[in-house]
């Protein structure tokens, strides 16, 4: 082959490779833009940002009842401790474990309060949204990699590459402008998270506005049976407790008060659940504050405190309850270790 032919062939090859690289880059840019624009900024974005950038002494973990029921400021009044509520609906023990790993990577938490909702221990975590809620907000690091390796790798490719798929277009499209603005300017202003039925606070507490009982939605009750529990939930709860123990972080389990109608609807199931967790935490030597059995008198179960039958407290009641919970913790020196460390 002549030199001119050789160089022409080389030019052709380079051109082809260039076109391929250019095409792939163009595709990647469009896909990144779609993720930026269509993946909404949720309060979990703020929560994860807070715990990975600022020191918080007490972390409150668990499910939606904890998110709407524990206000860290009311809880820790007079203790000199700071706190953040990183509960969320769909937070399973596995998520809590990796959130704790993340917190330990970035700061030095001194105590953990864990909201135990027995219903969450019955089923496996649903594929999709609830994972994305956490994973995509995690900053790059060991915890993010471990979370992917452990829980996400077998989910469909959209989970990793197109997280916006879990949010209906009719809700994400109208928000494009503010989503892009918040993401591109790294804006974590909580005013974006204020809605008509709830308000998110900087300490992670989600304040629900009161709802009349006649407007309560139908309850979602999952009957409890120890033999039908998904084993991975207890496995991760155990891992979380061990992690806290290794780092000398006090761990306190709490079962949030439930409305009386709910408790009366299936008392046997609740009794089985409370017995199971009481036994478990006794074996683990973990303090367990159950506001539906041992501490049932500590807070009212009247429906007027709630926004539904599932046990989500309204804002004022949540602050009141948090104060009571804080007093119990203080009176029993449960946070003394955290205060000493501080």
């Amino acid at each position: 082959m002549h030199n001119s032919e050789k160089s022409a062939a080389k030019r052709k090859r380079t051109g082809r490779a260039g076109r391929t690289i250019l095409s792939l880059t163009a595709v990647a840019v469009v896909l990144i833009f779609l993720n930026l624009a269509l993946y909404p900024c949720t309060f979990m974005r703020n929560d994860v940002h807070t715990i990975s950038t600022e020191q918080r002494d007490v972390l409150i973990m668990g499910t939606s009842c904890g998110k709407m029921g524990i206000d860290p400021d009311s809880l820790l009044t007079g203790t000199g401790l700071s706190g953040h509520n990183i509960c969320v609906g769909g937070e399973y023990p596995a998520d809590a474990y990796y959130l704790m790993e993340l917190a330990l990577e970035k700061q030095d938490p001194k105590a953990v309060i864990y909201d135990i909702d027995p219903g969450y221990f019955m089923g496996k975590k649903e594929v999709g949204n609830n994972y994305l809620l956490f994973y995509h907000e995690f900053p790059a690091g060991k915890a993010k990699l471990a979370y992917f390796q452990d829980l996400l790798k077998d989910h469909d490719f959209r989970t990793l590459f197109f997280p916006y798929y879990e949010y209906p277009l009719q809700t994400s499209l109208p928000r494009i402008k503010s989503t892009l603005y918040q993401r591109l300017t790294a804006n974590y202003d909580v005013s974006y998270l204020k809605g008509q039925i709830q308000e998110y606070h900087e300490n992670g507490f989600l304040e629900k506005y009161p709802v009349a009982q006649e407007n309560f939605p139908a309850p979602v009750h999952v009957p409890f049976a120890a033999e039908r529990m998904a084993p991975e939930n207890m496995e991760y709860l155990g891992k979380l407790i061990r992690l806290c123990r290794e780092k000398d972080i006090p761990f306190i389990a709490v079962s949030m008060p439930l409305p009386q109608t709910t408790l009366q609807a299936d008392p046997e199931s609740f009794e089985r659940a409370w017995t199971y967790f009481s036994d478990y935490f006794r074996d683990q030597q973990i303090p367990y504050l159950n506001f539906n059995r041992e501490l049932t008198q500590a807070y009212s179960h009247r429906e007027e405190h709630y926004v539904d039958y599932d046990g989500h407290l309204n804002g004022d009641s949540a602050r009141e309850f948090s104060g009571i919970l804080g007093s119990i913790l203080k009176n029993n020196n449960m946070l003394s270790g955290a205060a000493e460390k501080n």
Partner: peptide
Amino acid sequence: FCIVSFSPMAAA
């Protein structure tokens, strides 16, 4: 985009 957005959420 259509596949990603309009497939069922638990399709895989």
